[in-house]
Computed example of a mutant assay.
Amino acid sequence: MLCESASSEWFELRFEERIRGTIGMYRIEEPRLGGLRIKEWRRRARLAVGLLFLVLLGSSAGLVLLDHSDAPLPTKMFTALWDAVNLVTTLGDFSDFNPDQKIFMLVAILATVVVAGYALRQLTGILSGDDVMVFWENRAMEHKLETLSNHVTICPFGPVGQLVAARLRDEGVTVLVLDTDAKQAEKASGLGYMVILGDQNSFDDVLERARLDTASALFVTGTDPNSNLEITLVAHTLNPALQIVVSGENDLRRMLLEKAGASTVIDQNDIVACAMVRQIDAPQARRT
């Protein structure tokens, strides 16, 4: 079978560093935990920002109420806001305080430390799991697949598929690999190919993600004749004009594949046999 925000930018950079040297892989069965972790992190981040905002607001209001100077109210409010911002951001550029304000600021500093500690404890480490990295990798691959066109799709990345992919890439063709084997998919990704990984029961979803509507050709290189037939049929349904090259081991299989939509059916056994015979005929022809 077939085979918000600065924080988001930072984690995308981490993902790019993690897969440097590879093009990327899209996993059909993406771990749901990655998306849930990110949603939870964002919820906690909003809560932490909200608490810091309350500390800022409360500090500003308290400093205004405890300011016994004769300064106008707007001046008192600006000074209080300035001191509160310095408190929350730890810049340390404060104005002079009267005794009541100093006591209040001690309480505000303690509150800020508590809120900051809570925020660090809640946010640190939640986005460091592999499931989160997979989530970002899938998001990056989605953008690439959306603009993919005139590419050649190879399914799966077995011995024949690897040879076909290498020769196509040498000719400057964009290659997209489809597979159900995680090790083969990782190997293809490590070699610099774009990859879509699915399981045995999701090959139709994989083919739909492969942008066969904009592809120039599909090479079906698997060894399972029934799987090759299914892939050919689904691919032809998705794009009747797509060139599909697939291997078939006998005349019956060739007929079935052609009816399923294959443009070219290659008999690998016949090719090997011809190559072997040529190795014998050539010397005999020279002797005669």
Rank of each mutant, 00 (worst) to 15 (best):
F97Q: 04
N226C: 05
E142W: 09
V234W: 04
G222P: 00
M194E: 06
S8C: 10
I109K: 14
S8Q: 10
D199F: 01
M276H: 04
D199L: 01
D251A: 13
P156V: 01
S227R: 13
K183V: 07
A166Y: 03
L47G: 00
V277D: 00
Q162I: 05
S202P: 03
V132K: 03
E9G: 04
G58P: 14
V195I: 05
P72E: 04
N150I: 02
V173R: 02
M276G: 00
W41R: 05
V49F: 12
G50S: 15
Q184T: 06
D100V: 08
L233K: 13
V220G: 03
P240L: 04
G129N: 11
F157P: 00
E40R: 09
Y118C: 02
S227Q: 11
A273M: 12
R211T: 00
V49N: 12
Q243H: 12
W82H: 12
S216I: 12
Q284P: 04
F157M: 01
A48K: 13
V115A: 07
L176I: 08
S263G: 13
Q162A: 08
E258A: 09
D204F: 07
G21I: 15
R32D: 02
N269P: 08
D179E: 09
P240T: 02
L176M: 07
F203E: 01
N228Q: 10
A210Y: 01
A275Q: 11
L51K: 14
L178V: 05
C3R: 12
L191A: 09
R121F: 10
F157Y: 03
T90D: 12
L191Y: 11
D199I: 04
P159K: 13
Y118A: 01
A6N: 11
A80R: 15
K183M: 10
D270T: 08
E17K: 14
L57Q: 07
V220I: 06
L73D: 06
A108R: 15
D267F: 00
T89V: 10
I38Q: 08
V132S: 00
G92A: 07
I196W: 02
R286D: 06
D96P: 15
Y118M: 08
I38F: 11
W10M: 05
V272S: 07
A111N: 03
